[in-house]
Structure formats: C-alpha cells, structure tokens
Design a protein around this nucleic acid. Structure first.
Lengths: 161, 161
DNA sequence: GTAGATGCAAAAAGTTTGCGGTAAG
DNA sequence: CTTACCGCAAACTTTTTGCATCTAC
C-alpha cells in the first residue's frame, strides 16, 4: 500500500509557493495584508507541527512582541475562511463520546456537527495492513467524512440565495 | 464501494449485548458498579448522537437529578480508559491548525498529540468516489491514523515495566 | 469498615467579544 | 480619509481539581 509521511523538501517548496501568493489572495478576498497576518501565515507554512493558536502565538511573539493571542485566534479563523489554512480538528470545541467501540468510521456535518457511524469494510481492508508509518506505530485508523447533512444542505442553499 | 450508515436495529442489538456485560467488565477492571456509571453507559449505548458530556448530563439528570456534571466528565473518561467508550475527538482539547491545504491525511500520536502529514494516494482513490452517504453530502474525507510516535513508544514501554 | 466514587464549588484552560485606538488601502 | 484591523481586558465555555461526604463491596 502506497503511504508515506510528507517529506521536508516537499513541504518547504509548497510553503514558498503559497507564501508568494498570499498577499494577492488576501486582497482578492477583501482582506488587508497586515504584518500580523503575514507573520502568522509564515509560521503556519514553516512548521510541520500542526500548532495550536497558543503555539503560533509563542512563535510570532518573538518578532511581534505586542501581538495579542486574540489576534492570533481571529487570524487563524480568517485564514481558514479564505482557505489559506485548515483546522485539523473540526470538532475540537467539545469532546464527543461514542458507546460503539467496534471498529467503524464517522461522517460529520461541518455545519451542525451531527455525527453518524459509517461502516467501510473496503477501506478497512486497505488501511489495516500497515502497522507503522515512518516513526509512528499505528494502533488504529479512523476515516472521517466531512459532509453536510440533509437539513444543513437546505439551510446552506437558502443562505446563499 | 461498500459503505453504509450503521442501522438502528444493528445498533440496538449491539447495545443490549454490551449493557449485559457491563457490570462484569467493571468489576474485572476494579471499578465499582455505581448507579451513575450504569446510567451513563445506558445513555451512551442508547443514542446514535455521539453526545458531549453536557448532553449526556442533561439526559442522565432526568433520572438522577443530583448527579453532577463533573461526575459525567470523570465517568466518560473512566469508560474510555476501560474501553467501554471512545472519544470521537482525541484532539478536542485545543484547535490545531495546518498550513497545508492540499488533500492529505494525518497520523496522530495519542500520547503526546504530535501530528504528522501523510500521503495516501491509494485510499484517496478508494474514498473519493462516493459523494453521498445516506442523507449526508460528502465534501471531504480525512483519514486519521492513531499511533504512538517513537518517543512515546519508548516511554510507554518504561511505564509498563 | 475501607477504598474508591460522588457532589459541590472553585480553578484552570481555551476561545470569543466589545471597544477605543491604529494602520492599510 | 475611511474602513477594517488590532490590542487589551473582560466574558464565556468546557473541563479539571480539591475536598468533604457517601456508598459499593
């Protein structure tokens, strides 16, 4: 099965391209290109760490000692809205529990955060082989489908018309 | 591709079996079988909702008006420790951001919460076909490998010896 | 009877918001 | 010059913790 960690060279090439296009993309989206926004996208593109807002703040602060944590939160949200960043954790805001401890997967409505269980025997066959990825020893695999549920499809349509 | 939402009958059969075994499993794990724990596992097994602690609390409270939210939090943690429940959101405690907005997947160390990017062209081919699951319209797919990183493998070993 | 579990209240951790001053376009 | 942005402080939400009491075994 074809599967690998994303390498450092690959990431830094990608980062350079994205940084070059950043100012243009901001203006196209109606956003001002502020030093804070530049500093934050630079940190995000430079690290493989998938940082928290707090972690980004600690790094950005080294060059912008006056920046506030609130700005970092607002900026990260903004970057996600224009597609310059992703939240790795769409459900981070409160823990969700599942009584079903058998192997299965989830579909999550990105709008109302409803979650439903999904069976996916094919993917399990594809995914379960591999016991390590680089330095990581794999102990479980879960597929998360981001989606819109029926209700939210309807409401999203209304809001756009 | 074989893929479906898990049905209601299938879930309630499973719940009945699990509930029957619950007390035994608690005692085997050295846990007291308290009315609060029973009430909470019953709620978890009865709902397809993947509830938050708060949501479990609201339901349990109808029969145990004196239960406290702290107990619900503690109990859900405990249930996860003995494998009677799962957190759908292993990274819920703070939002994590990613500057890489190209399609890719993640491996997460369940101990130190380090995250690394993973490429998975095979799975993308398997997963990308499907545009709907039941009533959900799929807009993205992400695979999360739960794992132990090298450091944490070593430390986990030490702690068990 | 005793160790472990619970309830309550307070604290901690993470995120959001209101507002007056500031800077990008 | 104007609008949007930022910093600060306060508020809010979710989760954790300390401690006295209670209960399952």
């Amino acid at each position: 099965m074809d599967l690998k960690l994303i390498g450092e060279r690959q990431r830094s090439d990608y980062a350079a391209r994205r940084l070059a296009a950043f100012a243009t993309h901001c203006r196209k989206s109606g956003l001002a290109v502020t030093p804070q926004r530049l500093a934050i996208i630079r940190v995000l593109l430079a690290t493989p760490e998938h940082p928290t807002a707090e972690a980004v703040y600690e790094i950005v602060r080294q060059e912008h000692p006056h920046i506030s944590l609130a700005t970092v939160h607002r900026t990260l949200d903004t970057l996600c809205e224009i597609g310059e960043a992703h939240k790795v954790t769409p459900l981070h805001d409160s823990a969700r529990y599942d009584g079903n401890v058998a192997a299965h997967h989830h579909v999550v409505c990105v709008r109302c955060r409803r979650i439903a269980d999904v069976e996916l025997p094919d993917a399990d066959r594809v995914l379960h082989r591999r016991a390590t990825i680089g330095e990581f020893r794999v102990i479980g695999t879960s597929v998360e489908f981001l989606a819109l549920c029926k209700n939210c499809q309807a409401e999203a349509k209304q809001n756009h018309e």
